[in-house]
Simulated assay, not measured.
Amino acid sequence: MKVAAGIPTPSGILEAALYVDDLPAAETFYGEVLGLEQIQRAGDRHVFFRVGRSVLLLFNPDQTERPPTNPDLPVPPHGARGAGHVCLILTREEISTMRKHLLDWNIPVDAEFDWPNGVRSLYVRDPAGNSVEFAEGHLWE
């Protein structure tokens, strides 16, 4: 695929969004179970967590599908239904530790394997059914 000349290339992903139907359950999973730093909660609309230099946005689609009511924040309606996916970076050793930690919380492992390039991945589901992957950071190198 050819990149168009003169088009700025983004340097990374600032935020990623998953949609959940039960914010308190998601808040517990990502905050208490995974230990992510919660940076914002807005009623039953959303809860946001810091992940390194990025932010994981968890939205209730019933709320975000509605048109904005604040003219100072005219975020367009958005939302998705069904399971999404996010991949969080851990070292191989940290993946092993996370696996034990998740099993201690009775969270079943969906899959765990090494990719053809030798990178380890571990997959689980959050309370909304989203696929949460933990992988070594050099997966795409």
Rank of each mutant, 00 (worst) to 15 (best):
S96V: 12
G43Q: 05
V33G: 01
L103E: 15
F134P: 03
T64I: 06
E32T: 10
A83M: 06
E94V: 05
A25I: 00
Y19E: 02
Q40F: 07
Q63N: 09
L56T: 05
M98H: 04
Q38C: 10
P108A: 09
R120N: 14
D72S: 13
L88E: 06
G118K: 07
H46R: 13
L88M: 07
H101E: 12
D110W: 06
L88V: 07
I95Y: 09
S54E: 11
E93T: 15
V75W: 10
A135N: 07
A83E: 07
A4H: 10
G118C: 08
W115R: 15
P67M: 09
F59T: 03
P116R: 11
G12E: 02
N117H: 05
C87P: 05
P10T: 06
P108R: 09
F49I: 07
L88P: 02
R120V: 11
D110T: 13
V86Y: 05
A16W: 04
S54K: 09
K100H: 12
D114R: 15
V86W: 04
A80R: 12
K100A: 14
P127L: 01
M98V: 09
N130Q: 04
G84T: 08
G129N: 01
G82N: 06
L57P: 05
V51T: 13
P67Q: 09
L122W: 09
N117R: 05
Q38L: 08
A42R: 05
E136G: 12
V109L: 11
R53N: 15
T64F: 08
W140P: 03
G52E: 06
V124Y: 03
G79I: 06
H46Y: 13
P10Y: 04
G43C: 01
L14G: 15
C87S: 13
E94S: 10
Q63I: 02
G137C: 03
L58F: 01
E27W: 00
G118E: 10
E27G: 00
P67S: 07
A5L: 14
L90W: 12
W105R: 13
L139F: 15
D110F: 05
E15G: 08
H138Y: 14
L73Q: 13
V86S: 04
P61I: 09
I39K: 07
Y30W: 06
I7S: 09
V119S: 08
C87L: 10
L122R: 05
V20D: 02
A16Y: 08
D110I: 12
E27H: 02
R120K: 15
F134S: 04
L23N: 00
E94N: 10
L122T: 08
A17R: 01
D21M: 01
V124E: 03
R99Q: 15
E65R: 15
G118H: 07
A42C: 07
S121I: 11
P116V: 11
E15A: 14
F113V: 08
V51W: 04
D114V: 13
Q40N: 11
V55R: 07
I39W: 01
I13M: 12
R66F: 11
L90Y: 13
D110Q: 13
A42M: 11
D21C: 00
R81T: 10
I89G: 10
Q63D: 09
W140A: 14
L18C: 01
V119F: 05
P68G: 06
A25F: 00
Q40P: 00
G129F: 00
E133R: 02
R45I: 00
R99K: 15
T9V: 15
A80L: 08
L102C: 05
G52F: 05
V86G: 03
T97H: 14
W140R: 15
G52Y: 04
